[in-house]
Every structure is written in C-alpha cells, then in structure tokens.
C-alpha cells in the first residue's frame, strides 16, 4: 500500500468518538454494515447523505478523542472511508484504526491545504499529502514499519493469523 487518493470530507478539531459513533448504537457489536449506517448520525447527519465510499476524512487536531469504542473506527471503515488525515489523533482511535486496516495519517496542516470536496493524494511511503487541484503539499509522518506491516496485512486479525500460520504464535 503506497498511494491513496480520494475526495475530501472535512471536519474541525477534537471530533470525539461519541460524535463519530453515538452511544445509543453501542449495542450493535457484530454487524459492521449496520454500524456504518450511523456514522456521525446525531451531530452531523449530513455525512450519511453526502459522504461517499472512497472519501478521505480530513480533520484538525485530536481526531477520535473520547471513548475506546472501536465502533468509531469500524463504522468509518465499513462506510468505505479510505483514510483519515488529521493534525493529530487521540491514541486509542489511532490504534483501533490501524488494527482494523483503516489508514490514519498524521499530517499537520492538511486541513489548511484541502477544502471540502477537493481531491487529495496521500503517499504513505514518501510521507506527504497533496491537493491534486492546487498542488499544495504537506508532510505526513511515516508510520513505524511494523505498524505498516499490520496495515499492509489488512489489519491486526489477518496479521496475527499470518503469524499463527507462520508458527510465530502457538495456540494454548
């Protein structure tokens, strides 16, 4: 996985997990397609009408702050969001996203060069985010290799399955 491109759906700072995935739907624990139907539902109902699979979320600082609910990352992934780019992330959301195979990219200033609806391009290996229309670019931090490994395997589950098959983890 090297390049990701898509249309920008933009948010501000401190978008919390209650906003991304309302608490009243936490009883949905297994049906991921169902989770995807409630992304941002209470606070930004427009998202469900206007965002499209393949879109990239671009946000300010501290995206995903709040609870550890994995549904906040799952709902975006199964909605079809192809990546989330932000100035910074809250750490649990960040880890959840990686574990689910949803690319999360720390790129301070991305929200300044990309407007709602713009096409952007993310280069995971060379570490930049570029606005295809204006050509403006910001740097993004490269993820540690083994984190790229998890993402590359499509998330933690398939990553661990691979390690089990490779005899690196033995069953109890």
């Amino acid at each position: 996985m090297k390049m990701i491109s898509g249309r920008v759906y933009k948010f501000g700072d401190d978008v919390n997990t209650d906003v991304i995935y309302p608490g009243k739907y936490l009883s949905i624990t297994t049906d991921r397609e169902e989770m995807a139907k409630h992304c941002f539902e209470t606070v930004y109902p427009d998202f469900l009408k206007k965002a499209k699979p393949g879109d990239i979320i671009v946000a300010g600082k501290n995206f995903g702050c709040g609870s550890s609910r994995e549904q906040a990352a799952t709902c975006l992934k199964f909605f079809g969001i192809s990546a989330v780019v932000a100035d910074s992330f809250a750490r649990i959301f960040f880890r959840n996203a990686i574990n689910l195979g949803l690319p999360v990219i720390v790129a301070p200033g991305a929200a300044r060069i990309a407007e709602h609806g713009d096409e952007i391009e993310i280069d995971l290996e060379d570490g930049f985010v570029k606005n295809c229309k204006t050509g403006k670019m910001v740097q993004s931090s490269r993820l540690p290799d083994f984190v790229m490994g998890i993402l590359g395997d499509g998330g933690l589950i398939s990553h661990l399955q691979k390690r089990i098959r490779g005899g690196k983890i033995r069953g109890g």
Binding site: G66, S67, S68, I92, R95, N96, N99, L100, L160, I169
Partner: peptide, 29 residues
C-alpha cells in the same frame, strides 16, 4: 477496552485503554 482504564494509575499501575481488536490480540499473545 475502556478509555478510562487510566483510573488504575492511582494504584501505581501502568493502565491504559485499548480497542477491541487489539484486546483480541492481547488475549492471543
């Protein structure tokens, strides 16, 4: 698998929240 797991630091525990898939990894390894 709860963000306020930091609470247990009051007992001198390195305690932190993680997500569910990650916890499945912990249960595994």
């Amino acid at each position: 698998t709860d963000s306020h797991t930091t609470t247990h630091g009051a007992y001198g525990t390195f305690a932190t929240g993680i997500g569910a898939t990650e916890m499945a990894g912990v249960w595994t390894t």
